[in-house]
Computed example of a mutant assay.
Amino acid sequence: MITLDRKQEYYEALVSKNTEYEGLFYVGVKTTGIFCRPTCPARKPKFENCEFYETAQQALLASFRPCQRCRPLSHPNHVSAVIRTLVEAVERNPEKRWKTQDFRELAIDESTARRQFKKRFGMTFVEYARARRMGIALKNIRSGRSIIDSQLDTGYESSSGFRDAFARIMGTAPTRLDGEHVLKATWLDTPLGPMLAIADEQSLVLLEFVDRRGLEREVERLRIREKAAIIPGRTSPIDEIEAELEQYFAGTLTKFQTPIRMIGSPFQQSVWNALMQIPSGETRSYQQIAISLGRPTASRAVARANGSNQLAVIIPCHRVITSGGELGGYAGGLTRKDWLLKHEYAHREQVGTEQESS
């Protein structure tokens, strides 16, 4: 989470083109839809039109495209021909799912592309292309606009081209939505970064941080399992969780009441139910969860179920640590897990103090 003070620091670095901040942050410009490096020579935007990100991937997932002047996806002192060619190819068709044949047509070795992107940006080319593609989908979700508005915003001159792209991202063509089971998706801003919420009219089925690794595949699996179309929109459960998340992050809520539907095997659901029994401000080990389920040798299975949780924060998989007291894994990132645990522990201490003084 980037604090207001840090944002102001980054903005000053941006205005002064301070080279010491290269690689520390990227700035997304709301008015142009592009993101830049700190030393970009372009005219500087107003502070209120800036969004700051610690990685290029975060900027891509927020739907910003790379600046053509400062080329934030190229090393400051070396513009790789391979990287430049691939980035330009992605911008020509951002929704494309890349295959081996596509690299051959550009006379680029697939493994070379993977290594160069990984070395420069900490993500492979496929991860970059996926982030750009997902960013477009999330932009449509965040705006909540109609399908025709999305078509115009995305720049498609033909409706057929837009339908194909929509189908690749959301799983169904716009004209086929009528009469099908529909799930609605909304972008929710939180202090720890944006989250994607998906629900029908009765319950919430997915809540994840948008930069979670594998989120796109997770959404696809949800769509296939539910035999549903996923479109931008809001439902009552989404409105409820948005309000409850605001209270949670403010430290005034410890237990969620938003109706949820857990989609998983009976064992997975038993693990998720056990997680919801862990009091806020406390932790349990994978081993303790396994023992509570009467399966003391199933620690690894518990860990796998923990990692398959599709309702972050609500089903508190962040409260599960290793037997040695270490954080272990967390799909939303260990920094977030550490923050959530400290936040809940501090709130528990605050409640205890208030009760003693009353």
Score class of each variant (00 low, 15 high):
Gln116Thr: 05
Thr32Ile: 09
Ile2Gln: 04
Leu24Ala: 08
His75Leu: 13
Gln257Ile: 10
Thr31Cys: 02
Gln350Asp: 00
Trp272Lys: 02
Thr353Ser: 12
Phe64Asn: 02
Thr31Leu: 05
Thr172Phe: 03
Arg336Ser: 04
Val351Leu: 01
Pro76Leu: 15
Met276Glu: 13
Gln277Ala: 08
Ser158Asp: 14
Ala89Glu: 09
Phe121Ile: 04
Gly251Tyr: 08
Asp239Pro: 00
Leu293Glu: 03
Arg71Ala: 10
Arg43Pro: 09
Leu61Gly: 01
Val182Phe: 12
Glu12Ala: 01
Gly325Asp: 06
Ile314Lys: 04
Cys70Val: 15
Leu177Gln: 14
Phe166Lys: 00
Asn18Asp: 07
Gln287Trp: 12
Cys317Ser: 11
Arg234Cys: 00
Leu215Asn: 05
Ala274Gln: 06
Gly214Leu: 06
Ile321His: 08
Thr172Leu: 04
Thr112Gln: 03
Glu157Cys: 04
Ala274Leu: 10
Gly144Leu: 04
Arg225Asn: 06
Ser111Asn: 05
Ser150Val: 10
Tyr53Trp: 12
Met1Ser: 02
Ala81Gly: 15
Ala81Met: 14
Glu208Asn: 02
Gln288Trp: 14
Phe209Gln: 08
Cys36Ser: 08
Asp239Cys: 03
Thr154Arg: 06
Ala59Asn: 09
Arg336Pro: 03
Lys46Asp: 03
Pro66Ser: 10
Thr112Trp: 09
Gln277His: 05
Ala274Tyr: 11
Arg336Leu: 11
Leu275Cys: 12
Thr322Cys: 04
His347Ile: 11
Asp338Arg: 14
Leu14Pro: 01
Glu282Ser: 09
Pro296His: 03
Glu240Pro: 02
